Computed example of a mutant assay.
Amino acid sequence: MASNSASRSVAKVLGINVDYRKEEPLHSSGASISSVETYVEKEPTAFEYVSQFKPSLPAFQRYLRSLFPFWNWIFHYNATWLLGDVIAGK
């Protein structure tokens, strides 16, 4: 496991604590809390984090319309104006 020791060395140089998940055990001073369940929250995965930014379908449709604004009017275009528009475009 040379890569593990190399990773730890790089982390140490950068000041990163790779053992941050290892917590100190709790020392109780007489009072017992054995009847209370401990709550442990799992860390989110990268996929879970990125999925919160996934747009809804209406938001995605608005985005596509903003990329191609002619879709808003192209199906209502008056074809009799086509010749004039082609001449004006030259």
Rank of each mutant, 00 (worst) to 15 (best):
E48A: 13
S56P: 06
L57E: 03
F75C: 07
V50C: 08
F53E: 14
I87N: 02
N78M: 00
F70P: 00
P44R: 00
T80C: 02
S32K: 04
T80P: 00
V50F: 13
D85Y: 04
E43H: 02
E24F: 08
S28V: 08
N78Q: 08
S28A: 08
Y63L: 13
L67C: 11
A31V: 15
Y63I: 01
G30K: 15
S51I: 01
T80I: 03
R62H: 07
A59N: 10
W71T: 15
W81N: 12
P44F: 01
V50Y: 11
G84I: 03
N72P: 02
S56F: 07
E24G: 02
L83I: 09
V86T: 05
T38Y: 06
K54Y: 09
F47N: 11
S35P: 01
E43M: 03
S34T: 10
I33N: 03
A31R: 12
Y49F: 10
P25F: 02
L26R: 10
H76S: 13
Q61S: 06
H76K: 14
Q61V: 13
W81C: 09
A79Q: 08
V36C: 03
F68A: 05
Y77R: 10
W81F: 13
P25W: 01
L67S: 06
V50P: 00
W81R: 13
